[in-house]
Design a protein around this nucleic acid. Structure first.
Length: 416
DNA sequence: TCTGGGGTCCTAGGACCC
DNA sequence: TCTGGGGTCCTAGGACCC
């Protein structure tokens, strides 16, 4: 059996874990640049704040209901995620970390699934302060559905198990097709034309139709819903095939210098991510564009690919080539809103060059030292070109403390 | 005034090869 | 009048996920 552990309202719960005065109050977390809503506590859902709405649309709701609003604090959420996952790892023989706030677990040969499941859920909440729900079923797709039931209905007490045909069919009948893992907007509307409204309806249409109209991907979902497991556990996360760092700016950029700061910063972040998976970049893509929401302003979209002579994970080199690329596409006279760097070709082996002039052993030691000082999130050490003021930086007006990753921001307790 | 970011997988179609 | 067939590789774009 597969289990799916999902943290409830993860980002909002992280904010609460270190700030209990938020309990019982509506809490929302905003995307980068305080743009739109990406997490909501149950109280915030009840008063009608929808996922993904721009922050400025909910101003009134925030005011009338005294909603607590936070900028996203990825250092905090990332670290809390590590804590949740490490507790899970201790509990089960096999775990697949599916996203920051979700993990599949393997539950084989267990007699009392309810007890074991409840125990897992309680351990995580006790150890981290994050409430979680667990869905258990014979396939991953069904486990996802079971998890939704565990969340939605308090009677399940955080653990829902689909272990009989009756329960499977009942669950599918109560699940709208749009709520099925793997069925997005497009497929849902295609299925709607076939009269499919629920997950159960979907399992009743012919396999050949599904294969023909929804490719192997749709067919896999169709089988999984029927109880035939097609998606296995992935023990180790496969190495990334692409690494990307991009941001919208807090303030539009007009000139080359601040754009160079931003691109250097993104390239440097990519290099750090590369080294974390012991890989090397073979080529980079650099892109810049204006704000496409501003129809009143002239628009410009451009990207360029730079091939690297020798595969590298060296920040200095990657930044150098990223800036070369930027020079090729940057034109003044536009208000730029966003830029990014994508490592498009990644290799695990560094093929050295015959005419290489860089002392790579030395540079590797330098990178190791920088990574050690900076850790996973901080930027204590950076290149001068990344800038000091960084006026293009994210807007983060409601940022909470990095309670778990910054010694200056740990929680303090007054004992009077 | 203000609309996120980082990924994966699959398919179709073109280029190219013998 | 007559104009092959089979294969691989790459890329762009679509769809999906959290």
């Amino acid at each position: 059996m597969f289990g799916l552990v999902d943290c409830n309202n993860f980002y909002a719960s992280c904010e609460r874990a270190f700030n209990p005065s938020l309990n019982g109050k509506p809490v929302v977390v905003l995307s980068n640049n305080d743009g739109c809503v990406i997490a909501r506590s149950n109280e915030a859902k009840v008063i009608g704040i929808k996922m993904g709405v721009p922050a400025f649309h909910i101003k009134e709701l925030v005011h009338t209901h005294n909603v607590k609003v936070f900028s996203s604090n990825y250092a905090l959420y990332g670290d809390m995620s590590v804590r949740v996952m490490s507790i899970l790892t201790e509990q089960v023989p096999e775990i697949e970390i599916y996203s920051t706030d979700e993990a599949f677990i393997l539950l084989e040969g267990i007699r009392n699934l309810t007890n074991v499941g409840t125990n897992i859920v309680n351990k995580v909440t006790q150890g981290t302060g994050i409430p979680v729900s667990l869905g258990i079923a014979p396939t991953k797709t069904l486990a996802k559905i079971a998890n939704k039931f565990a969340k939605k209905y308090p009677a399940y007490d955080k653990v829902c198990i689909i272990d009989t045909e009756e329960k499977r069919i009942r669950a599918l009948q109560l699940t709208e097709i749009t709520d099925v893992w793997g069925i997005g907007k497009k497929q849902a509307s295609k299925l709607g034309q076939q009269g499919v409204k629920t997950a159960y309806d979907f399992t009743q249409i012919s396999g050949t139709w599904v294969r023909k109209n929804m490719t192997v991907v749709g067919e896999r979902t169709w089988k999984e819903l029927k109880g035939i497991s097609c998606i296995d556990m992935e023990k180790a996360p496969p190495p990334k095939k692409q690494i990307c760092t991009s941001r919208s700016f807090g303030k539009m950029i007009e000139y080359f210098d601040p754009m160079a700061e931003a691109v250097a910063t993104f390239a440097s972040a990519c290099a750090r991510k590369l080294r974390q998976q012991n890989a090397y970049a073979m080529s980079l893509m650099i892109f810049i564009h204006t704000n496409n929401f501003r129809e009143d302003l002239p628009q410009y979209w451009r990207n360029t690919i730079v091939k690297l002579p020798i595969p590298t994970a060296d920040t200095l080199e990657i930044v150098h080539y990223a800036l070369e690329g930027l020079k090729n596409i940057f034109i003044s006279g536009f208000q730029y809103k966003k830029a990014g760097v994508i490592i498009t070709e990644i290799t695990e082996v560094a093929q050295l060059g015959l005419f290489d002039t860089i002392n790579r052993a030395k540079r590797e030691r330098l990178m190791q030292a920088i990574d050690k000082i900076n850790g996973n999130y901080a930027c204590h050490i950076k290149l001068a070109i990344q800038g000091v003021v960084q006026e293009w930086r994210l807007k983060q007006e409601q940022l909470s403390h990095c309670y778990t990753t910054d010694i200056n921001e740990i929680i303090t307790i007054n004992c009077k």
